[in-house]
Design a protein around this nucleic acid. Structure first.
Lengths: 146, 146
DNA sequence: TATTGTTATACTCTATAACTATA
DNA sequence: TATAGTTATAGAGTATAACAATA
């Protein structure tokens, strides 16, 4: 038989907004993981697919800036997407230094499926709150991030 | 002269609670970084110090569980704290397999200083919201994480 | 000169698995 | 047998710096 774990104290950690945000964000990652179970994807890569889809032809640098990573990080990201046939680099006539990024038909299809799943699970995750609470939360978080 | 960056579209990312949480959490990390400028610390290590301080004598496994990491991660964490003279491992008479963790006097002093800084900066960061908004936000985030 | 993509490299964080000593 | 700590190892993720091609 297992001894009951000793009671742990957290001092005033729950007063720290950063700590509370971090915990909520980890719960969000976990919800995403469940929503995308069985698909080889991550929050960052999902974000990348959404952004490429919404901005067809954008450059790697622009993608990196949108994701908040260095150019080399965007490079790795696009390699990953291209290796799986989800996105492709095309020549840009107006600037031979850079590529234009596009989702492939397969990438579009997968993104549609992922969006459906993520939306449904987001609703389930957010379902811990009443609709009015959720609207308030989104507003307050945006205000905090701005 | 630099060309103006092309307008970027984010589709419905801002509808996704996980995405909004992630952005807010990154803003929180940045606030922490500013608050602790010049001190060699991180949010996770700060959390570890707070928990050791609040639970003197706890084991590494208990610390790992509190931090949400594997035992080997707690090991690395405690090594880091011990190397800098901030915490120490003491023998536990009641169980020779495990250590009891304690902050050193130096650790206590540094934690006091850090707490002051983090609290002040937390107030500044949270200051983007009205006090009533902040209370609402904390409540909603806790509800979401629970 | 400046920018884009690329490559090499390194550092942090974290997870797994195997080992040891104690229980 | 189960658990705590330890160690080795590997995999993400990310940052910096240097280089070639192009602007």
């Amino acid at each position: 038989m297992k001894r009951p774990a000793r009671q742990l104290y957290y001092d005033d950690l729950h007063e720290h907004l950063g700590y509370v945000l971090r915990r909520a964000q980890l719960a969000g990652f976990e919800a995403f993981r469940q929503a995308t179970h069985g698909v080889d994807i991550s929050p960052a890569r999902y974000t990348a697919m959404v952004i490429v889809h919404a901005n067809p032809g954008l450059t790697q640098s622009a993608l990196g800036a949108a994701l908040g990573t260095a150019r080399s990080g965007a490079m790795t990201m696009v390699d990953w997407l291209e290796d799986r046939g989800l996105a492709e680099r095309r020549n840009r006539p107006e600037d031979a230094r850079s590529w234009g990024l596009f989702l492939t038909p397969r990438g579009e299809t997968q993104l549609r499926d992922l969006k459906r799943r993520v939306r449904a699970n987001d609703a389930r995750f957010a379902g811990r709150l009443a609709p009015s609470e959720l609207a308030t939360l989104r507003k307050l978080l945006d205000k905090l991030s701005g």
